[in-house]
Design a protein around this nucleic acid. Structure first.
Lengths: 163, 163
DNA sequence: CAACATTAAATGTATATACATTGTATCGAT
DNA sequence: ATCGATACAATGTATATACATTTAATGTTG
């Protein structure tokens, strides 16, 4: 179904307005599918993403701030998110010896096992997307998304500036 | 910035994995900008979307279920969302005469005025996107997003294919 | 028309989230 | 070394959300 059919709107003010609506709609569709897929494993999407970030660093630990840096949505309470994972024994949290304000978070064996288990099943929900887009289309789509976010503004030194 | 730079991840397992991450990341970026833009007007994104749906029907009223149908994220408690808008006097809610289980919701003059006010300022936050993508790129992006969600086969233009 | 199923919306409740604030620790300038 | 500024994580609190249940009205079937 096209976005027009999905939300029962016949026309949009512009292709740009349509693409904004489509992005939000498609993301919700994706997030709902993802959340459903993770439910049997007792993880929220955010918890899953944090675990993946920690696996990427394994066997090293990283601080909460570093986790936020790498998260898809920089949430304000990553601290409580880590709490939940600690309770489930999927991650370890220890005071950072270098800087006692910070904490070092790392994934446990149990956490790695859970991710491996999820990986084994996750092909199923991502497979559809893999089938529908060719590699080229996927790259093209990523490129267009990058472009939407790109800010061409430069500061007084000529360096790119975030808006 | 490319998605790789944004979340400090050097490589992805596949273009398809990358596109999923990029979609979620870009949507969060977009939603945050949108929410910031609406904050001065005291509306959440969801409230804003409901108001726009109601403006699309004006001067007719539609039921809560019809609103949910047209929402970008079909949330379970549209009822409470309408509540908030009623309190702000942006919408009216009256028992539907045809079916007394249902309620007819319609936008008020005050609601229309607020949307018009927002429209006058909203060019600012959407302008960036308009500048960055050409009309063709925007259409192309919408087509790729439709394709991701499609459950049936589609051809290279995103049109359904008979099997 | 009586009994049951279905539908629309509202509500109860546990959890999640945003936002502001707090408690320490570290840094930097004097 | 001391004072103030900044940084990291945790916490308090109001609000938002998902999910299940409830209430009331309508459909359906025998």
């Amino acid at each position: 179904m096209t976005i027009e059919e999905e939300i029962k709107q016949k026309t949009f003010a512009s292709p740009h307005h349509k693409v904004v609506v489509n992005l939000i709609y498609t993301n919700n569709w994706l997030v709902n599918r993802h959340a459903d897929a993770l439910k049997p494993f007792g993880l929220s999407i955010q918890q899953y993403n944090v675990l993946r970030i920690l696996r990427g660093q394994h066997p090293n630990a990283i601080t909460v701030n570093a986790i936020i840096d790498r998260m898809l949505d920089k949430m304000s309470n990553a601290s409580r998110l880590v709490d939940k994972l600690v309770v489930k024994e999927l991650v370890n949290r220890v005071e950072c010896p270098k800087d006692r304000r910070a904490v070092d978070v790392s994934i446990t064996e149990k956490g790695l096992d859970l991710l491996a288990e999820i990986d084994r099943h996750s092909g199923e929900w991502q497979a559809d997307i893999v089938e529908r887009l060719s590699d080229e289309e996927a790259e093209q789509l990523s490129g267009l998304l990058d472009k939407i976010r790109s800010t061409e503004s430069v500061d007084c030194d000529g360096n790119p500036v975030e808006s």
